[in-house]
Design a binder for these strands. Structure first.
Length: 887
RNA sequence: GCGCGCCUAGCUCAGUUGGUUAGAGCAUCUCGUUUACACCGAGAGGGUCAGGGGUUCGAAUCCCUUGGCGCGCACCA
């Protein structure tokens, strides 16, 4: 446990995340600085500062947060905190999504499991109350979890896709699109879920592979193949490819009569190229009411359409004796009957096909023709007001065209760029969007009927006698408005809307590109006349150690809250931010989180040590003038790190920025510089400056531990979260420092390979002609770090007999291992060194003799290679000399 | 069927427009003087960059190809 001595400025020897995090988050919240207005008011950012805005992809109110949410929160919080510290007017806007079907089906399940009731038992009003209560409690959980992750979201602007403001936005949006003639009502084939009693859009289908029987039946002169005999009752069209030689005797339009399931039937032959002669028997019958492809074929050839299956998945009277049966029950019996009639030719049991299911709830989807509301994406209309480059106000456009245009013209950039292709694949093939859903939970369609009259309006018609359409809207309709419905729209004058729209970045998982991102582009460009965001950053999915999706049934779920409780939020965030690249899935293990917990503690202890060596810490300390080579070196490194971290964050390379920082913090700062500081002493100002800068750079990644340290040092009134991102310049170079590092490492390595105790002090002779001053000036540093009794710097090697040696660029180092030196071992060691340098020299020489290289390579590269060769040769010669002296 | 991605150290992954003898973390092995830290320190071993071909002075990186894995879309009578 922690020790508490008065000399420890931070009291605890090990950082204990759980005792700090809640208090720190509360302090952030109380400060109000998550809200950009307060930042302006309190002078944290300028009134006319650049805005930086981002909406949080609203989690569904169906449950709790998982690792996918955690990675999203971590990445977005890094951006938000970085921009806030940079002085931008920064808004990260939270909210939740009512997730219509998902939430309703979840509550229906709970209702049925606990009370054995259906929603119809409760009725619409009572049922919706239950859903709302569920959504409310789910929302509370989500908010608390988001806070636990340290998310600096502006809770004062929190929105819900189904609250009053968003409902008003939805009605307004629907009305505008209706008036533009883009929303229409019509009979189309939809994906009907008999279980949910609702249709779903194409993107909501989840295909599941299934092995099933594929039946071949005699159908007049033909053999037809089908996996679905139960739909075949009224099939009376036979389709054949026009070029199929096997059936060339038949012509388009020919009819014949044959025996079928419930007696004789008259069928018509249709020739169409849609038929694949290779599949099955090359002959097919069609069922326009229950197949999208068949529906379009029927439309094309103007064929009759007849419903066979009702909305509950039961057969209709057309099925005769099978009427009223469920599909699953009827199928076998129908096959049996056809078999008895001698019409069953054979059954292929190995048939594998994709079964369409509802990805929310898993019901098996049955295509049905229904009257629904659609959004026409191919219809031309006049875009009244446009701020989009390349599309002027008043231009005739289609929604699809705008969606293609804004990405093609780079007004929206997708990161990683390969997803641009997925975007176009989807947009180019976009079909009309079915907007209506036959569920209760959601935005009710703002359309009213009276007799044959239809009224669409933001508000109900004033007169009596109108009845509202009972259907609700696809949840993605309201989600599509999210970037602007959360900023005050449809009030065009809303200050938030004018300040923060378009948003800068939309950060989300790549799996949501087609569902949501595309809908926001559609809605944003149409309603706002501008892109909803300038950049789309897509992160990968979080998987388990074996690369499997995390799921409750597999029991491989890592709960972010378990991780934060055990290892701290900072460690959890780091494990999600470092070690992956955008758009690629990452495997997460508990060991990885634990590793970053260790780093969190390292930073904590670095700070503890540094603070013991600062006289009176100041948060505003200026960059000091370096007094030693090491000082120059650490400032040079710090400056490089600051530049590259800043650039990496700006360019969305979050992992790279984190790795650079970790490498600097652990290796350069802790392992080298702090050890030197112990020797050189008297570095108050420099250590103060380095500590401040390091804590600041780390803050977006590890907000808690950095803030805890900051406030312990500078008081509760100071807040790192709103301190300024570093801005300093440093142009000095610590040229010789890496050479000193090489010498120290070389001595340590020799010591280890000879098994000499670290406590044994050694005598070293350093032969250098060019770097005498460097070594002389740093004798104490080298001696202490390598544990030497003497470090003699000479330009000519004297008597070094019996000493082990190594070569580094610029110096030959001889280490007196006293009696420990084993001549044979030393020879072997040097020979091994030589044998690794020799082929290197050969390859460099070959390269430098190659005329093609000399002619084509840039001068800088050639010079670089020449230098390498010179160095390698020098090293080789010295090693050779050392070796021969042992002979 | 079309498209996309991946294959780099035992494991998890970096490697930006081609230009150090290909890197990191974890794991492994050896040794632990030094009170910031054993959630630590020092050192070490470990890779034909999936296979084959090509372009180039030069390829982990670009092109073609084969194989394995994953994903998306389409088909699914």
């Amino acid at each position: 446990m922690s020790s508490t001595t008065s000399t420890d400025p931070l009291f605890e020897k090990a950082y204990e995340s759980s005792s700090h995090e809640d208090g720190i988050y509360a302090a952030w919240e109380d400060s109000g600085f998550f809200n950009p207005d307060i930042c302006v008011e309190k002078g944290v950012c300028e009134k006319d500062a650049n805005p930086f805005s981002m909406v949080l992809p609203p989690p569904n109110v169906t449950g709790t947060l998982h690792m996918g949410h955690a990675v999203m929160l971590a990445v977005q919080d890094v951006m938000t905190r970085y921009h806030r510290m940079k002085g931008d007017k920064t808004l990260w806007l939270p909210g939740t999504d009512h997730a219509a079907i998902a939430t309703q089906s979840k509550v229906e399940k709970i209702l049925f499991d606990t009370e054995g009731k259906t929603r119809h038992d409760l009725g619409r009003v009572e049922f919706l109350k239950r859903v709302q209560a569920f959504a409310k409690s789910s929302r509370d959980t989500i908010v608390n979890q988001s806070k636990k992750m340290g998310s600096s979201l502006d809770w004062s602007r929190e929105a819900f896709t189904l609250d009053d403001e968003r409902n008003f936005a939805v009605r307004t949006a629907f009305k505008r699109m209706y008036d533009d003639g883009l929303i229409y009502r019509g009979h189309r084939i939809v994906n009907w879920d008999p279980k949910m009693q609702c249709n779903v859009s194409n993107v909501e289908i989840e295909y599941k592979e299934e092995q099933a029987s594929f039946y071949y039946f005699q159908y007049g002169p033909f053999v037809i193949g089908t996996a679905r005999p139960e739909t075949k009752f009224s099939d009376k069209y036979v389709l054949i490819h026009p070029d199929d030689e096997r059936y060339k005797e038949y012509s388009d339009g020919d009819t014949f009569t044959c025996e079928w399931i419930n007696g004789p039937i008259t069928a018509t032959i249709i020739k169409d190229e849609a038929v694949d002669p290779e599949f099955g028997s090359g002959v097919m019958t069609i069922t326009p009411w229950h197949s999208e492809v068949d529906f379009h074929l029927a439309e094309k050839h103007n064929l009759n359409k007849e419903q066979i299956i009702d909305l509950n998945g039961k057969l209709l009277p057309v099925a005769g004796e099978f009427a009223g049966m469920l599909i699953s029950d009827a199928r076998k019996k129908i096959v049996e009957k056809l078999n008895k009639k001698g019409l069953l030719v054979r059954i292929d049991e190995e048939y594998v096909h994709n079964k369409a299911t509802n990805y929310r709830g898993g019901g098996i989807l049955e295509p049905q023709i229904r009257e629904q509301w659609f959004l026409d994406v191919n219809k031309e209309f006049t875009l009244t007001r446009s701020k989009i480059d390349g599309i002027a106000s008043g231009d005739m456009v289609t929604l699809k065209h705008i969606m293609q245009h804004v990405v093609r013209s780079n007004q929206i950039e997708i990161i990683p760029s390969r997803f641009t292709k997925a975007y176009f694949d989807w947009v180019d093939n976009l079909r009309d969007w079915c907007l209506s859903r036959q569920i209760w939970y959601g935005h009710q369609i703002p359309v009213w009927y009276k007799g044959d009259d239809v009224y669409c309006g933001v508000n109900p018609p004033k007169e009596d006698g109108w009845e509202q359409d009972p259907d609700s809207l696809d949840t993605w309709f309201s989600a599509g408005l999210w970037t602007f419905s959360t900023l005050g729209w449809p009030n065009e004058d809303a200050i938030d809307l004018q300040t923060f729209h378009p948003t800068n970045v939309l950060e989300t998982g790549y799996d949501i590109l087609t569902f949501w991102v595309i809908r926001m582009v559609l809605m944003g460009t149409y309603h706002m006349g501008e892109v909803p965001f300038k950049t789309v950053y897509l992160h990968g999915l979080v998987r388990d150690e074996q690369g499997r999706k995390m799921s409750k049934t597999l029991g491989n779920v890592l709960d972010p809250l378990d991780m934060t409780a055990k290892y701290g939020t900072d460690a959890t965030r780091l494990s999600l931010l470092i070690g992956g690249t955008p758009g690629n899935d990452m495997k997460l293990s508990e060991a990885k989180v634990a590793g970053f917990r260790n780093f969190t503690n390292k930073l904590w202890n670095i700070s503890r040590f540094v603070l013991m060596n600062i006289e009176s810490p100041s948060k505003d300390v200026d960059i000091p003038t370096p007094k030693t080579l090491a000082d120059t070196w650490i400032l040079e490194r710090l400056h490089d790190v600051f530049l590259s971290v800043t650039k990496d964050i700006e360019e969305y390379r979050f992992s790279a920025a984190g790795e650079t920082l970790r490498d600097f913090t652990w290796n350069d700062l802790a392992s080298w510089y702090l050890e030197i500081a112990k020797i050189e002493g008297n570095k108050s100002q420099l250590l103060n400056f380095v500590l401040n800068t390091v804590l600041t750079l780390w803050h977006p990644y590890m907000p808690f531990v950095t803030e805890v340290i900051w406030q312990k040092v500078y008081g509760k009134d100071e807040m790192l979260m709103v301190s300024k991102w570093p801005e300093f310049s440093f142009s000095q170079k610590a040229t010789g420092f890496p050479l000193l590092q090489d010498v120290v490492s070389g001595i340590r390595s020799l010591r280890a390979s000879y098994g000499i105790s670290p406590s044994k002090e050694l005598r070293v002779v350093c032969v250098s002609s060019d770097h005498n001053d460097l070594f002389t000036n740093n004798t104490e540093m080298v001696s202490t770090l390598s544990r030497l009794s003497s470090f003699d710097v000479v330009s000519e090697k004297g008597n070094v007999e019996g000493m082990a040696s190594f070569v580094t660029s610029g110096a030959e180092v001889f280490v007196d291992l006293a009696a420990a030196v084993d001549v044979d071992k030393e020879k072997t060691r040097l020979e091994k060194e030589i044998s690794s340098v020799a082929p290197y020299i050969t390859s460099l020489e070959k390269k430098l003799k190659n005329e093609g290289f000399l002619k084509s390579a840039p001068d800088a590269v050639v010079l670089q290679e020449q230098q390498k060769l010179t160095d390698a040769k020098e090293k080789h010669d010295k090693l050779q000399t050392q070796l021969s002296s042992l002979m």
